[in-house]
Amino acid sequence: MQENATRASASRAIPFDAAKLDRLMDAAGLDVLVATSKHNVQYLLGAERAIFFDYMDALGVSRYLPVLAYPKGAPDKAVYIGHRLETHQRAVAPPWVPQVRTESNGSVDAVMRAARALKDAGVPIKRIGVEMAFLPMDAGKALGDALPDAELKDALLVLERLRAVKSAHELAKLKTASELVIASMLEVIAGQGPGTTKQQLSDALRVAEANRGLTFEYCLLACGSSHNRAPSAQRWEQGDVLSLDSGGNYHGYIGDLARMAVLGEPDTELKDCLAEIEAVQRAAFAAVRPGAMGGDIYVAAERQLAHITQRDCTEFLAHGMGLVSHEAPRLTASGPVPDDTDARLPLEPGMVVSIETTMKHPKRGFIKLEDTVAVTAGGYEIFGEDGRGWNLGGSAR
Rank of each mutant, 00 (worst) to 15 (best):
Q2G: 12
A5M: 11
A5T: 11
T6M: 04
S9V: 12
S9E: 14
A10R: 05
A10I: 08
R12V: 06
D17G: 05
A18Y: 04
L21S: 05
L24M: 07
A27N: 13
G29L: 14
G29V: 02
G29K: 11
L30Q: 00
V32R: 07
T36L: 11
S37C: 06
Q42I: 02
Y43K: 15
Y55Q: 04
D57G: 15
A58V: 08
A58F: 06
G60L: 03
L68Q: 10
Y70S: 03
P75N: 13
Y80G: 00
I81T: 12
G82R: 00
L85W: 13
E86R: 03
T87L: 08
P95D: 03
W96G: 03
P98Y: 04
V100G: 05
R101M: 11
T102P: 11
N105V: 15
G106I: 13
V108K: 02
R116I: 04
A117W: 03
A117H: 10
P124L: 14
I125Q: 15
K126T: 09
R127G: 14
I128K: 01
V130T: 02
E131A: 06
M132L: 13
F134W: 05
L135Q: 01
P136Y: 02
M137A: 09
A142H: 05
G144Y: 11
D149I: 02
D149G: 03
A150Q: 07
E151Q: 12
L152I: 10
E160C: 04
R161H: 05
A164S: 11
A164V: 13
A168I: 10
L171A: 04
A172W: 00
I182E: 01
S184C: 10
M185R: 03
L186P: 09
L186E: 14
E187A: 08
A190K: 07
A190R: 06
P194K: 11
G195C: 10
T197P: 11
S202Q: 15
A210H: 11
G213S: 01
L214E: 00
T215K: 13
F216P: 00
E217N: 12
Y218V: 03
L221R: 00
S225G: 15
S226E: 12
N228I: 08
P231T: 04
Q234G: 06
G239F: 10
L242D: 02
L242Q: 04
G248P: 01
H251W: 08
Y253V: 03
A258L: 02
A261N: 10
G264D: 04
P266F: 04
D267R: 09
K271M: 04
Q281W: 09
Q281R: 11
A286W: 01
A286P: 02
A287G: 10
G291C: 12
A301M: 09
R303T: 15
R303L: 14
A306F: 09
D312K: 13
A318W: 01
M321K: 00
V324Q: 04
E327Y: 06
P329V: 06
R330Y: 09
T332N: 12
A333W: 09
A333M: 12
D339W: 13
L345P: 00
L345G: 04
P346I: 01
L347S: 01
E348W: 11
M351R: 07
S354G: 15
E356C: 15
T357Q: 10
T358H: 06
K363C: 02
K368N: 11
V375A: 01
T376K: 02
A377Q: 09
A377S: 14
I382N: 02
F383W: 09
R388A: 15
R388C: 10
G394M: 08
S395G: 09
